[in-house]
């Protein structure tokens, strides 16, 4: 006799708010933030940790939410791209993406911004091009906005270094 669906009472912090939801253990974190919380910024591009479109910050680290069980997030803190802006205002990094045209179809964009935010938060000084290229190498962009993404992140990094 096959096992029936198992549930898990999941509690975690989502974009700063404590939330609680009953999930199926098979559900990935990506499914839950999209389906149960309607935060659809993170996208499913591959479901196999190969594109980065689903990137979110988990306890401050950029991870593929498609390759994390929702239950694994229990007690942790998740920040999605929606959580980077405040009061409907894009963050500085989001603005550099807009101004540099660091996006085309936009499907990879949330992931790029999350991965870049992690990179910036952990940088010791101003990031050089090589560090940015390597740091974002898990986030593919089929539209090929790489040059512009590099500019955007580099500008954001310069801005932080000045501060």
């Amino acid at each position: 006799m096959k096992m029936e669906a198992q549930t898990f009472d999941l509690k975690f912090k989502l974009n700063g708010k404590e939330v609680n939801v009953l999930v199926d253990t098979r559900e990935t974190l990506l499914d839950v933030i999209r389906d149960s919380f309607g935060l659809t910024g993170a996208k499913k591009g591959c479901d196999e940790a190969a594109c980065g479109a689903c990137s979110v910050l988990f306890n401050g680290h950029a991870v593929c939410s498609c390759t994390m069980l929702a239950a694994e997030a229990h007690g942790g803190s998740i920040v999605t791209v929606e959580g980077l802006s405040s009061n409907g205002k894009p963050s500085f990094l989001q603005k550099t993406f807009m101004e540099n045209d660091a996006l085309q179809c936009g499907f990879c964009t949330s992931g790029q911004i999350i991965a870049a935010a992690f990179l910036l938060d952990n940088a010791e000084g101003e990031l050089d091009d090589h560090e940015i290229r390597e740091g974002l190498s898990g986030n593919v962009c089929r539209c090929g906005a790489y040059n512009k993404i590099l500019h955007a992140v580099s500008e954001a990094s310069r801005n932080r270094a000045v501060k």
Binding site: R34, T40, K95, L103
Partner: peptide, 21 residues
């Protein structure tokens, strides 16, 4: 000029088909 919908796209607000419920 930056894209007219750049804001929606960078903030994760643009609704693609999979985002409809």
């Amino acid at each position: 000029e930056p894209r007219i919908d750049a804001r929606e796209r960078v903030m994760g607000l643009a609704k693609y088909t999979a985002d409809w419920h």
